[in-house]
C-alpha cells in the first residue's frame, strides 16, 4: 500500500513539475468548447441542447492528449523495469499510474467543465450534476486509456494509434455521461439511472482495465 501511494505521489509530482500535460489538456478543452459556437451559430437553445454532448466529447479528446504518457516516460528511462521488480503486482502498478492520470488530468478537466458549460448556455442548475457525472465517469476514461497506453508502448507516434484504439471503448461512458446531463437539461426522465450506469462502468473499468494493461506491459518487455 505504501508502495502504491509512493508511486501515485511521484506521478502527481512529476505531472505538476513537468507541467505541459495538464496545461495542454485544459487549454485544448477550453479552445474546442470556445470555438464550437462559431460552428453551430448563436442559437442559445440549440447550444444548451448540444452542450452535454460537446462537453463530454471534448473532455474525452482532451484526456487522451496526455494518455500516452501514462507509461511511456517510465518505459523510456528504465523506470518501468524497476517498477516491475517491486513488491507491487503489475496490475496494481498499472492501476496506480492510471489513478494518477485521473487525478492530474481528468479531475482538472471536470472542474473546468462548469466554466465551459456557461459558454454553451448550459442551465446553471445542471452544473453540479455535470461535474458529478464527469467525476464519476472519468475514472473509466483514465483506466481504459491505461490499456491503450500499455498496448502502444514503444511505438512511434503512439498517441494517434492510442486514440484509435481507445475512443471506441469510450462509447458507453459517452452515452451514459451525456444522458445523465441531458436528462437534467431537457428532461423528461430522471438523471439518476444513467448516472448509476456511469458509476458501474467506472467501477468495472477500475477492476478490469489494470489486468489488461498489465498483460500488455508484459509483452512490451519482449
Amino acid at each position: 500500500m505504501t508502495a502504491a501511494l509512493a508511486l501515485i505521489r511521484r506521478d502527481i509530482a512529476l505531472a505538476f513539475r513537468e507541467g505541459g500535460a495538464i496545461g495542454v489538456a485544459l487549454g485544448f478543452y477550453l479552445v474546442v468548447i470556445a470555438i464550437a459556437p462559431f460552428g453551430l451559430g448563436p442559437d442559445l437553445n440549440l447550444l444548451s441542447r448540444v452542450a452535454p454532448g460537446l462537453l463530454w466529447v471534448a473532455l474525452l479528446l482532451a484526456a487522451l492528449l496526455s494518455a500516452d504518457r501514462i507509461f511511456h516516460n517510465d518505459y523510456e528511462d528504465g523506470t518501468l523495469d524497476v517498477l516491475t521488480m517491486g513488491p507491487l503486482p503489475l496490475p496494481v502498478v498499472a492501476a496506480s499510474k492510471s489513478l494518477a492520470h485521473w487525478i492530474t488530468t481528468c479531475v482538472p478537466l471536470a472542474l473546468l467543465a462548469p466554466v465551459l458549460g456557461l459558454l454553451l448556455n448550459l442551465p446553471i442548475h445542471t452544473i453540479p450534476l455535470l461535474v458529478l457525472a464527469m467525476l464519476a465517469g472519468t475514472p473509466a476514461v483514465s483506466f481504459i486509456a491505461g490499456i491503450g497506453a500499455s498496448l502502444t508502448l514503444g511505438l512511434r507516434r503512439s498517441g494517434l494509434l492510442l486514440a484509435l484504439l481507445v475512443l471506441p471503448l469510450y462509447v458507453p461512458v459517452l452515452i451514459f455521461g451525456v444522458s445523465t446531463v441531458s436528462a437534467a437539461v431537457t428532461g423528461p426522465g430522471s438523471p439518476w439511472p444513467p448516472f448509476l450506469m456511469l458509476c458501474a462502468i467506472s467501477l468495472a473499468s477500475m477492476v478490469l482495465a489494470p489486468l489488461a494493461a498489465a498483460a500488455a506491459l508484459r509483452t512490451a518487455f519482449r
Binding site: A3, A6, R10, A13, R17, D77, G78, V82, M85, G86
Partner: peptide, 29 residues
C-alpha cells in the same frame, strides 16, 4: 530479491536527487 541496474538509469530528471531516492525507498521498501 534482485536489484537490476542496467544501461538505463531509471532517474527522473524533474525530481531532485533526494526525491529520486526517496521514491525508490518508498516504492521498493
Amino acid at each position: 530479491l534482485c536489484h537490476y541496474v542496467g544501461h538505463l538509469n531509471a532517474v527522473k530528471t524533474s525530481l531532485s536527487v533526494r526525491e529520486n531516492l526517496t521514491f525508490w525507498t518508498g516504492f521498493l521498501g
